[in-house]
């Protein structure tokens, strides 16, 4: 998919673990892992809002468009 998720980058910047993020956002660890590894097919606005709130970032910081990516 041409949309690349940079969740791990933002988590590293905020020095936050996956466990901590999942607790604060309120979604399961497996779902967060799906998002982090780029396997997710879609993301709800509510989830995106929560992640942005917890990581104090913009949606654009979490994902970027890279044409030509499989």
């Amino acid at each position: 998919m041409a949309i690349v998720i940079n969740l791990d980058v933002m988590m590293a910047k905020r020095k936050m673990s996956l466990n901590e993020l999942s607790e604060k956002v309120g979604i399961t660890l497996s779902n967060l892992s799906i998002l982090k590894t780029g396997k997710a097919k879609a993301i709800r606005f509510s989830t995106l809002e929560e992640i942005c709130r917890v990581l104090q970032c913009q949606p654009g910081d979490l994902m970027e468009y890279r044409p030509g990516e499989p």
């Binding site: 979604i27 779902n31 967060l32 799906i34 998002l35 396997k39 997710a40 097919k41 879609a42 993301i43 709800r44 989830t47």
Partner: peptide
């Protein structure tokens, strides 16, 4: 179903 399962 797969799409729904992979929606976070």
């Amino acid at each position: 179903k797969t799409e729904n399962d992979l929606t976070v």
